[in-house]
């Protein structure tokens, strides 16, 4: 990658051209000039997204070995596999900005980069797999569909592929919950309990209210982000409320009510103290998730070293072979 950096604050022409291109909805590509803050902001967002995919494997993988039918087991395994795949696309997309996967993983393991706080909640029953699909993936899609038009090309293209798979995940979650809701009394209760626990954390996935969001305004101007947190949250609630009715499950918010005037559902106040607390590391599973990730990485170190050592030997053998031919 050829990085062209203007003399700080002096080469206005490049900066102006960049701003104009973004404002005209043109895609920024890896070799284009871009402000360092734009690059840093993208790396931060893409890394957080990639980390969320791989940490997000854990709560669901927790149920692979206990899935109650072979069909459900196959669907769940495929879903967790997709998440690993999404992690791969996103780390690769971040590499186009000059940051390696290893570097980003080190930051995750050191607690210097974040992942979505939703994965710091535990999956206590099988119905949680359904609630994650319906609500968590549903919220993720609401967030991510606009990212298919985000200003940075490689990120936007990765998102197109990811969104297709996410919508399959959301449907399987909904269908899993429907089967439980219409099943035995115990199954119905399991589904209701899961929805009760996952509803509010799902609303928090859209991030703090617009007036408290640290990165929002600049990201909107650069068209990395295209809608505000509150806008997306409302969109999600409007979709989820009628779906809950069809599922035959209730949402744990007595204030949910259709507002004719706004043309949206009203909903109750979110407990932001909980959000900030989980974000700070005090959620039920923060330590568990990060330590499993670190352990997998550390225990895998000898495997990665062996692969590198073998590749090195092969390369040397190839060179010797070529030399012998000359």
């Amino acid at each position: 990658m050829v990085a062209v950096t203007p003399e700080t604050g002096q080469d206005r022409a490049l900066a102006d051209a960049f701003e104009a291109a973004v404002a005209a909805d043109e895609r920024v590509e890896p070799r284009d000039w871009m402000p360092e803050e734009y690059r840093a902001s993208l790396v931060r967002q893409m890394a957080q997204h990639a980390h969320s995919e791989i940490i997000g494997m854990q709560p669901e993988a927790n149920w692979i070995t206990r899935a109650p039918s072979l069909r459900r087991k196959a669907i769940l395994m495929a879903k967790v596999q997709d998440e690993a795949g999404h992690g791969l696309y996103l780390y690769s997309a971040a590499e186009t900005l000059g940051t390696s996967r290893d570097e980003l993983l080190d930051k995750l393991h050191a607690g210097r980069q974040k992942y979505s706080s939703i994965f710091n909640y535990p999956t206590l029953t099988w119905a949680d797999v359904g609630a994650i699909g319906w609500l968590v993936d549903g919220a993720a899609i609401t967030n991510q569909v606009p990212l298919c038009r985000t200003s940075y090309g490689p990120y936007a293209r990765a998102m197109v592929r990811i969104c297709k798979e996410e919508s399959f995940h959301q449907r399987q979650g909904y269908e899993l919950l429907l089967a439980l809701s219409q099943g035995t009394e115990a199954q119905h209760a399991m589904a209701q309990d899961a929805v009760d626990r996952w509803w509010w954390p799902s609303l928090m996935m859209f991030g703090p209210p617009d007036d408290e969001s640290a990165h929002s305004a600049q990201s909107m101007a650069w068209r990395i982000k295209r809608h505000s947190n509150d806008e997306l949250r409302q969109r999600f609630v409007d979709i989820a409320v009628p779906q809950a009715e069809t599922l035959g499950l209730t949402l744990p918010d007595p204030d949910i009510k259709w507002n004719e005037e706004r043309g949206h559902y009203d909903f109750g106040a979110i407990d932001w103290a909980e959000f900030w607390d989980v974000l700070k590391g005090n959620g039920p599973c923060n330590e568990q998730r990060l330590s499993q990730r670190r352990r997998a990485h550390e225990e895998g170190a000898w495997v990665r070293e062996a692969a590198a050592a073998h590749a090195e030997k092969q390369a040397q053998a190839h060179v010797q072979h070529e030399e012998a031919r000359v």
Binding site: A61, V80, L88, Q292, A296, E299, G300, A301, A307
Partner: peptide, 10 residues
């Protein structure tokens, strides 16, 4: 799942 030594192996 979630324990592999490298993402490609997941």
């Amino acid at each position: 799942a979630g324990h592999a030594p490298v993402l490609e192996e997941e």
